[in-house]
């Protein structure tokens, strides 16, 4: 299956890691799953499953390397395009926090070289400057995001609906096309719009739906972009209406769910970003995402999310 469409459109960016693309060679995406044995509490594994499947369905080769406590990133066999870092239990977060310091240099370099990182909940918190727990303990992060988290007594547990930051939104629309017919597509768009008429939603590709479950409140530094604006739920801290963070291709958020399987636009956006680093601009082959969008819609329509 031809996995790279619109070859004429592809251009090679001048990036350090960009290699010559042989037009016959298959695309390959190398994924690093950070601490899968410790930061795996909230079903975030679904994000890895989504990326792997959506690549395989398009004939893109995928490798997944599990990197945990004591494993080295710099001696790894692969040059990783995509890092995933999920949420874990508090005590496990401490174990990971310590080990992560040893991987800080490599991870920071990867971010500067535009690898994609998706971090969720505990993973997101550890990529910040620090996490101060409720009883005053400081867990040092690695400062990829200029942000910090403070433990609180309230646990924020609910469906979380956000409107994606407009600067990313346009890139998502460009990266994502779905196979569904135009009519079907606009029908669903209307349905989603209808259920959120009062919220003046503009369309399916502008929002993300997930489930948050955290007591840490995250505050972003002044130059750090949020991933989006909270429509329903608490988001970063339940106070300033922001959710998540974006620095280069590093993304952090509180969206479990799993996030990517029922937000296919965001999944494809991250996949193209990760591939572009190596192959230049990529137009992904569209997939039939009817089931994904139904799941998306059903989650949005749950009463507790409203």
């Amino acid at each position: 299956m031809a996995s790279r469409l619109n070859k004429s459109k592809s251009k090679v960016f001048f990036r350090m890691k960009t290699s010559q693309v042989d037009s016959n060679s298959k695309l390959q995406l190398n994924i690093c799953h950070l601490y899968p044995d410790l930061m795996d509490t909230y079903g975030d594994r679904g994000n890895i499953i989504a990326v792997v499947k959506r690549c395989q369905w398009r004939g893109i080769d995928v490798t997944v390397s599990n990197i945990s406590v004591g494993d080295s990133l710099s001696t790894s066999h692969f040059d990783f395009d995509f890092f995933f870092f999920g949420g874990g239990q508090d005590i496990q977060q401490e174990i990971v926090g310590k080990d992560l310091q040893k991987k800080a240099k490599d991870l920071k370099r990867a971010v500067e070289q535009e690898s994609v990182i998706l971090s969720i909940c505990g993973g997101y918190q550890l990529l910040q400057n620090y996490f101060k727990t409720l009883d005053g303990k400081m867990i040092k992060g690695i400062g990829i995001f200029d942000a910090h988290t403070i433990g609180s007594t309230t646990r924020m547990i609910q469906n979380l609906l956000i409107k994606i930051n407009p600067t990313i939104q346009s890139e998502i629309s460009e990266a994502y096309t779905s196979l569904r017919g135009a009519e079907q597509r606009s029908n669903l768009k209307t349905e989603i719009k209808d259920s959120f008429a009062s919220l003046r939603m503009t369309g399916e590709e502008t929002i993300l739906i997930g489930f948050e479950n955290h007591s840490g409140k995250t505050f972003l530094g002044s130059n750090l972009k949020p991933l989006g604006k909270v429509i329903k739920g608490s988001g970063n801290n339940g106070e300033d209406g922001t959710e998540g963070a974006v620095y280069k291709n590093a993304f952090g958020c509180y969206l479990h769910g799993s996030l990517l399987p029922k937000n296919p636009h965001f999944a494809d956006y991250l996949i193209s970003k990760a591939l572009e680093r190596r192959y230049g601009e990529i137009k992904l082959e569209p997939l039939d995402d009817s089931i994904e969008w139904q799941a998306h819609k059903q989650a949005i329509n749950r009463p507790q999310s409203q």
Binding site: Y42, G43, D44, R45, G46, I157, F211, N213, H256, R302
Partner: peptide, 9 residues
Amino acid sequence: GKDVSWIWD
């Protein structure tokens, strides 16, 4: 459980 994330585990 209001969170269905667990099905991915």
